[in-house]
Every structure is written in structure tokens, then in C-alpha cells.
Nucleic acid binder design. Structure first.
Lengths: 193, 193
DNA sequence: GACTGCCTAGGTCATTCGTCCTAATAAATT
DNA sequence: AATTTATTAGGACGAATGACCTAGGCAGTC
């Protein structure tokens, strides 16, 4: 069906626009123009803007899940998997410096709008938090796994936020290095009695 | 002059509304209603919405500067001054969980809007960064002072962001505790972050 | 009491937005 | 070929927004 393809194009274009301009600031017209379809056609695929947002969140969730699954296949050392996560800050540095973290800024915007889909957007964070917790657990961090996961998520959010504000690539590099070092210090060494 | 008072009321109301609803989402009508003045009267005091934003940023800067100066007067131990900064997360916990960090969310929104006043808003971060750097310098951290200041700012941003997303007071408490511990480890003895 | 400058009230205007409708076209099925 | 279904086009609508204007009220001063 052609509709599926058009729908997918819309979601991807909306994904970019919501990230770069924010959800509220990106209009139907903007998205339609990006996909090169008419506003009427747009309405055929999505009845409301919230429906687009819901589809974008689902798309982002799918993308992240795929990425995490790939890391699990490619790398069986949980510490290295966690390093993959930290490395997002480097891999996406340019976009993060320009627009911040896609997940964090969306959650923050939806919180201010008191939007009904805020919990769905938070699900993106939950996905990462639970995945990181799993990795820390495999590392042998036991009941600390959850706290460590939240701590690392917190740092990546903080770095993204300040990277966006200060446009300082050196700062990002430094903090990523510090996260690596912090990671190495977690869990083992297991001290002898 | 009555105008000064009305203007001040407008700025304070706009400050709150920009924080709780976001800059774009807060309309002239919203602010005018909060101050209980007519939209026409509003226009007498501020010609454009950007002018309101500029005034709000200046107001926030003044407030923070006053707060930092007070901390310097009340507390001559730089470590305790830094603890005051960390404690903002506890003192403003309710608001932060509801609306995020006033500085961070504003900067992030203005970045997405590609707004002309983004540098002015970033000035709020710079104020804290330079003040923290000064405190770390007085602590004897030498040329690390700047990096440590940015690191602490980063952590407070990350905590505010996740606090807003997850509404988890226990997480905030835990991370504040971790920041205290981290602070105690800085300068001397020099330890990795 | 009239004048002048500061302040306020309420309304208008053009624009943009999300939403929705209808008619036309393309594709699929019979 | 005929009919039905899927997809697209373009415009219309009301609501909301930022911006702007003008008329009037209220000081204080001469």
C-alpha cells in the first residue's frame, strides 16, 4: 500500500521537525511541505497533531529499541555496551549542540504543555533506564544497578543540556571521558573480606 | 511612578508563566490576565513579546545575582557556598519536578526557536558557571576550577531534567547526596570525578 | 479650571494554526 | 469496461495570537 509509505515519510519528517523546532512550533504546514504533500492529504493519514506526535514517539521508541538490541548482539561485554550509550554524546554531538537531546527536550516541552502524551514520551527515558539497569546488573552491580542507570542517564542529560547552551565540544569530550572513568570504577573491584 | 510598579508586576507574572508554560505557550492575554490589566495597557509597557522576555531574563539575572551575593555574605567557606547551590535542587524540588529547571528549559526552548535572545538566556548559566568557578578556585582547585564548575552545573541540570520526567523525589535526594560526596572529594585530595 | 503628560481600557487587524470537508484522481477489483 | 476503494488536492472555517490604534481617565502644574 502506498499509504504506509507516505505515512512513514510523514512520521520521519515530523520526527526531524519536532526535534529541531519543537513540537508546538512545528506546524502541519511545515511537515506537509517537508514531505511535499498537501495539507488535505496529510489529514487523510493523521486526523490530529497529537496523533502525529504519538506516531513519532512510537517511531523513536522502535528506533531506540532496535539500536539497543543491536548493541546486545554486537557486544557481549556489558561495560562496552554501556560505553556505546555514553558514546551517543559524541556520535550525535553536532545535533545535540544545536538542538539538545531529542528525548529530554521533548519531555520537557510536553511537561510545560501539560500534554496528554507526556507519559508516552517519558517511556523513551524508561527504555534507556531499564536497559542500562540490565547492563549494570550483568556487570554485577546487584541492587545498585537501578541507581547507577539513573545516574548515568542523568549525566548524559546534563551534558546534552550544557552542550546545547555553551556549544562547547571540549566540554563534551571531557565529560564523556569522565563517564568512562566513572564506569570503570563501578561494581568490581569486589573487595576481599 | 505607577508605571514602574505595573511593569514590575508584569515581569514577575511573565516570569512565572514563562517558567510554568514555556515562553511560546504563554500569551499576552495570559500575562495580562495574571496581572489583571487590559491587553492595551500591557502594550503601553511592552511593545513586543520579545521585550517582555528580555525583561524577564534581566529580572532572573538580578535575582540570581542577589542570591549569590547573599551566599557570599552569609557563608565564607566556599565549600558550603557550593552546597547552597546544590541545595537548590532540594529547596525548589516541587517546582523542578513540575516544570524542570527555569534556566535550562528556557535555554532549550529558545534554542529550538532559534530566538535572538538565546545568548541572553545563556547568560544565566554563565553567571552560575563563573560563580561556581570562583568558589572552586577559592577552594584551591586551581586550573581545574572551571571544569569542576561545569561538571557540577551539568549534574544539577541532569538531575532537574530527570526529576521532571520521573517525578522521583528519592532520586533527587540520592543525587544531591552524591554531589555532596563528590564535592568533599575535590581539591585536595585530587581524585577523579 | 484648563492644560499636559503619564497611564489605562477596549477594540481592530492580519496572520497562523489545527481541523475538517468535498471533489478529483489513481489504483484495485470485478 | 465498470465499479469500488484508496489516495490526493485544495480550500474553508473558527479560534487564537502578536501587534497596533485611539479614545478617555487621572495625576500634578500653571
Amino acid at each position: 500500500m502506498k499509504a504506509d509509505e507516505t505515512r512513514r515519510k510523514i512520521v520521519i519528517a515530523a520526527d526531524h521537525l519536532f526535534y529541531e523546532q519543537g513540537f508546538e512550533n512545528a506546524s502541519f504546514a511545515d511537515i506537509a511541505q517537508a514531505v511535499e504533500i498537501s495539507r488535505g492529504n496529510f489529514y487523510y493519514h493523521f486526523k490530529t497533531k497529537d496523533a502525529v506526535l504519538a506516531a513519532v514517539i512510537e517511531y523513536r521508541l522502535d528506533e531506540r529499541k532496535t539500536m539497543l538490541r543491536l548493541w546486545e548482539l554486537e557486544e557481549d561485554n556489558p561495560a562496552n555496551r554501556i560505553k556505546n550509550f555514553i558514546n551517543i554524546l559524541i556520535a550525535n554531538q553536532t545535533k545535540i549542540m544545536a538542538f539538545g537531546c531529542p528525548v529530554g527536550t521533548l519531555c520537557s516541552e510536553l511537561a510545560k504543555l501539560d500534554h496528554a502524551l507526556k507519559p508516552e514520551a517519558s517511556g523513551l527515558f524508561t527504555l534507556f533506564a531499564e536497559w542500562l539497569e540490565q547492563q549494570f546488573a550483568e556487570l554485577g552491580c546487584g541492587d545498585q544497578a537501578s541507581d547507577l542507570a539513573m545516574h548515568l542517564l542523568m549525566r548524559s542529560q546534563g551534558v546534552a543540556s550544557l552542550a546545547n547552551t555553551f556549544q562547547d565540544a571540549e566540554f563534551v569530550r571531557r565529560e564523556v571521558e569522565a563517564m568512562y572513568k566513572w564506569l570503570d570504577q563501578q561494581c568490581p573491584p569486589k573487595r576481599p573480606m
